[in-house]
Design a binder for these strands. Structure first.
Lengths: 337, 337
DNA sequence: CCTGGCACTCCGTGGTCCTCAGTGCCGATT
DNA sequence: AATCGGCACTGAGGACCACGGAGTGCCAGG
C-alpha cells in the first residue's frame, strides 16, 4: 500500500512540519526535498497517506500535518536516533562531572537535559528497591527519639525519626545496630523484609518491643514512596510552543507527579528508548505532547527513568539522541560514585 | 492632597480591578461601592489620583487601572490582612499534620500554599546556618570511602561521601566521631568552624591528615549551598493569568533559583509579611508580578522564607493572610518535630 | 504512471464602519 | 467650594467585506 516514495513523502512532511510549524504543501515539498517527482505526483501520494490516516488537513486547501499515527510511523521506521555532537558530549561530561552528591547529580542532569532538548526534562530518583543496603545507622537523638539513617549503594540516604519509644539504653541501640547491619548490609532492598524477619527473636525479651518498633519503621521507609520522587526543569520552554490543549492543562499534568511516574514507568523495554506520542499517553492534558524516555542505571541494572516532554511536533531524532546520551552518562557517573 | 474619599476611590479601583481584570470606570465604581457621590465626582477624584501616579489609563476613554504605586499604597494603608476561615485552618492542620520528615513537610507546605492562594508558591528549606548540630555520624563504606552524615535540630540531614583517603582503621574513625560530637553537638552551625579548629592537634600525628580531610569536608558542607534549596508548586496557576511580560519570561525567572532566593531573602523585617510589587522586584521577567513572603521558624528564630508569586493584580489581603497562616503553622510543625 | 494546467476552496489580512464604554469639561445647583 | 447632570469627544473592539494567495482535486495528454 505504501511504497518507498510515499514513505519518503511522509518523512519529508514530518521534517518540514517540525521545522516550520506550518502545514506543508506539495510545492514546498517538491522544492525542499529531492523526491524527483512533481508536486502533482506528491499530491496523489498525499491523498493516499491521508486515506491511511498518517497525515491530515487542518482545513480544505491547506497543507498537510502529520497525525499521531504519522509520527509513530516516522519514529518507528523513518528516522534514526541522532548522535550528539562532540561539543555536546564534552558539555555533558563537564556539566555532570562536578556534582558532589546524589541530589546534585539529579539536579544537574535535569537541567542539562532541558537545555539540550529545549523542552521539559524529567528525572526520576534512583529506585531504592533495586539497590542494596550499604549501611544502617541508629542515632539516639536524646529524649525518647532515635534517628534511623539507611544508606544505599547508589548513594541515596533515607532518614526517619522514630518517636514514642520508651527509654532505651544506648548499648541496646548499639547492639541492634550491629545486628541489623550484619543481617542486611549488602542485601537488595527487596530481600530486607525476609532478612530481618527473625531478628526480634534474637533480642532480649525486655527490648523486643523496641526492636519491633525500629524494624517496622525500617520496612515502612523502604517500601514507601521512593519512586515517587522526581524533578522537573525547563517548563519555561513550554511557553514557546502553542498547544492544541491549553498550556494550563499541560502544566497541571506536569505537576501531578503520579501521572509522570506512570508515564515514565510504562516503558516497554528496559534500556531502550521509549516514545509515547499524543493520545498514546492516555492523559487528557498531554494529548498534544510526546514523551521520550529512557532507563538509566549502573551496568545493566536499571535504576530509574529520565525523559523529556514536548509537543508532538518535536524533533524526535535529536531528542532521542539527547535522552539516550544523558541516560548513559548519568549511569556512568552513578557507577563511579 | 489625597482626602479620605480619594483613598476610598483608590481602594475601590484596586478591589474591582482585581475582581474583574478590566479597567474600571467611574460609573461602575459608583454602582458597586457606597461612595455616596456621583460618577462625575469620582471622575474628578480619578484625575487627581492619576496625576499623583496611583492609577493610569491603558488608553484614552478606557477605565483606570492601578499602578505599582497604587498597589503599594493599597497594601500599606488601605487594606488589612484577611484571616483564614475556620475551614481553611482545619485544612492546613490536617494537611500538614501527616508529614513524616522534613522533605515531606516542605513538599506539603508548598502544595498547600499554592492551593490556598491559587498562585505559585515557594518554600525555602530551613537554613542550616541558624540551626545547631544534633549529631555527626561517620560511616565507613568499605574501600577508602567514608560517609559523613550531619543531623541538625531542624530535622535536616546533610550527607557527604569522603573519598580518596588512605586506609584508616575503624577505631580511628570511631575516635574521631566521638571527638567530633563532643566538640560540636548542640553548637550552632556558625560556631562549628571555631569549635573544630584545634581538633587536628588532638589526634595522633599519623591520623592527622585523615582528620583534616574529614574536617574540611564537614566545614565545606556546612557553608555551601544550603539556603539554595527551594521548592515550587502551582506553576499551572500562572497559565490562567495573562501577563504584560510574556509567560515565558516569568517561568524562566521562576526556574532561576538564585533569583528567587534573593527575592525571598530581601525581606526587611523578620517575622513580618513582605510584599514586593512589580518593578520593586528589580527583575525583568517579574515586572508584572508581585511577591508576598514571610519568615518561618521555631520560636522567634527565623529559619527560612516562604512566599507566593502572582500577578501584581492579585488579592493582596487574602494572599497575605494565607502566607502568614501557613508560615505560622509550619513553624509549629517544625517545633513539634 | 507521471505531469502540467485549471478551476475551486478557504484562510488570513487589511480596510471601513459602527457601537459603546468611558472620559473631560462646562455650567448649574446646593 | 464642592458636587452634579449633561454633552461632545475619543479610541478599542467587533462585524462585515473584499481580495490575494497557497494549496487542493481532477482531468487530459505524454
Amino acid at each position: 500500500m505504501l511504497d518507498e516514495r510515499k514513505l519518503a513523502v511522509l518523512r519529508a512532511v514530518v521534517e518540514d512540519f517540525v521545522n516550520t510549524n506550518e502545514p506543508v504543501g506539495s510545492r514546498a515539498l517538491a522544492d525542499r526535498h529531492p523526491l524527483g517527482v512533481s508536486p502533482a505526483t506528491i499530491r496523489n501520494d498525499m491523498v493516499a497517506l491521508e486515506e491511511e490516516g498518517y497525515i491530515t488537513q487542518p482545513h480544505t486547501s491547506a497543507g498537510r500535518v502529520p497525525t499521531d499515527k504519522g509520527y509513530r510511523l516516522f519514529v518507528d521506521r523513518l528516522s534514526s536516533v541522532k548522535p550528539l555532537s562532540a561539543a555536546e558530549r564534552r558539555a555533558i561530561e563537564s556539566f555532570l562531572g562536578g556534582a558532589v552528591d546524589l541530589d546534585e547529580i539529579v539536579a544537574r542532569t535535569v537541567r542539562l537535559l532541558a537545555q539540550l532538548t529545549r523542552q521539559v526534562a524529567i528525572v526520576q530518583y534512583p529506585s531504592l528497591t533495586r539497590s542494596s543496603v550499604q549501611h544502617v545507622e541508629l542515632v539516639p537523638l536524646g529524649g525518647h527519639r532515635i534517628m534511623m539513617v539507611v544508606i544505599t549503594n547508589t548513594g541515596r540516604v533515607e532518614q526517619r525519626v522514630i518517636d514514642g519509644l520508651g527509654v532505651v539504653d544506648e548499648s541496646v541501640v548499639e547492639d541492634l545496630r550491629s545486628m541489623l547491619n550484619r543481617a542486611i548490609a549488602g542485601k537488595h532492598l527487596g530481600d530486607v523484609p525476609d532478612a530481618v524477619e527473625d531478628l526480634p527473636a534474637q533480642v532480649a525479651p525486655e527490648d523486643r518491643s523496641f526492636a519491633i518498633a525500629v524494624l517496622s519503621v525500617l520496612l515502612e521507609s523502604l517500601v514507601e514512596r521512593h519512586e515517587e520522587k522526581i524533578v522537573l526543569a525547563g517548563t519555561a520552554n513550554l511557553a514557546a510552543v502553542d498547544f492544541a490543549a491549553s498550556l494550563r492543562d499541560v502544566l497541571e499534568a506536569l505537576e501531578e507527579n503520579m501521572v509522570l511516574i506512570r508515564l515514565l514507568g510504562e516503558a516497554k523495554d528496559p534500556s531502550m528508548l521509549t516514545v509515547r506520542i499524543g493520545a498514546e499517553n492516555f492523559h487528557e492534558g498531554l494529548r498534544s505532547t510526546s514523551i521520550v524516555s529512557a532507563d538509566y542505571g549502573v551496568g545493566n541494572q536499571s535504576l530509574a527513568k529520565i525523559g523529556v516532554v514536548g509537543p508532538t511536533r518535536m524533533d524526535y531524532p535529536g531528542t532521542m539522541g539527547a535522552v539516550r546520551a544523558v541516560a548513559r552518562y548519568v549511569g556512568q557517573i552513578l557507577a563511579g560514585q
